[in-house]
């Protein structure tokens, strides 16, 4: 079973606050799921290696014209803002 400390460490990396009972349930669920993943150890290595994706799929780095109202709506959706700026809490 994965330890409480390990769950808390992963939760911190994920920026996720977990209540005590959630930590306990997570220990149990994560352990069962990780055990299930052991199945993959049986899988052979692929014979030939593939290059993932078609690199030419990236679009040109250019500005696409959009309706300015979309920008206003996006700013309006921010929970904390001043004028056209989104406010962010101090890091320290």
């Amino acid at each position: 079973m994965i330890s409480k400390e390990e769950v808390l460490h992963i939760a911190k990396l994920a920026r996720l606050e977990l209540a005590d009972r959630e930590v306990e349930k997570m220990q149990k669920d994560l352990s069962a799921i990780l055990d299930y993943f052991d199945l993959l150890k049986k899988a052979p290595k692929p014979a030939k290696s593939e290059v993932a994706g078609d690199l030419s799929a990236t679009r040109k780095d250019e500005i696409l014209l959009k309706n300015p109202s979309v920008a206003q709506k996006i700013i309006a959706a921010a929970p904390d803002k001043k004028d056209d700026y989104i406010k962010v809490k101090a890091i320290f």
Binding site: V7, I10, A11, L13, A14, R15, L16, E17, L18, A19, E22, K25, M26, D29, L30, I33, L34
Partner: peptide, 19 residues
Amino acid sequence: SKGHGFGAEVKRRIMIGTY
């Protein structure tokens, strides 16, 4: 925000993914 906003399954998958 994440802790209160996400439900149990979403949290579980974020945790698996991060792990």
